[in-house]
Amino acid sequence: MHTRSRSIPKLGIGGPVGSGKTRLIEMLVPILSKKGYRCCIISNDVISKEDAERMKRILATESKIMPEDMIIGIATGGCPHTAIREDPSINLAVVNEIEQKDPTLDLIIIESGGDNIMTTFSPALADYFIYIVDVSGGDKYPRKGGLGIESCDLLVINKIDLALYVGADLSIMEHDAKLIRSNKPFEFVNCKTGLGVNRIAEHIINDLLFNKKPLQKMSHK
């Protein structure tokens, strides 16, 4: 039993409204959980706590992957980026509470409210930043750039199954993502079916968790 809090690795997920942030978390957590990693989720929303409630239903009540109290909703009010960048104090306070409550967690996932392409996380809040867009916005993303698309650690392009229906050319998106992000990674996914989400989990385990084994597995050795 740990008596002292530790700094738990923190993953920030940002992206426009409807791009699939919540769904990505719903697909990611079971994969990480299967590997033994224990997560907590903080879900920021502007007015409601709808996303947090949905995740509680899917990840706690229905699939029992994690306890309900490890999914925390924050209704931030105001512009979503203010709560994760300009003044992340509300999120930092919740992170602090979680670190005190359960220092054996492997990961804290912080979901931003839906925002614009300039979204970034305060480095005081997130150690690793995923920015997610979807093809239904058109294949001009990621060419249009913006801090979120350019500076994130991993760019995720979601809903590739819709490309055909909205006239988005994935090869253009791939070409532009390579160009605008230099050597930084990007992945195509379909969060509805889970296609490609395993690769996102691998990025997180490698680049944020440094390939460390889950804490509880280590302590049981």
Binding site: S7, P9, P123, D127, N206, D207, L208, F210
Partner: peptide, 12 residues
């Protein structure tokens, strides 16, 4: 690393 990454506490 980029300027934004200089503010990171955790990075690989």
């Amino acid at each position: 690393i980029s300027r934004l990454e200089t503010e990171r506490g955790r990075l690989r």
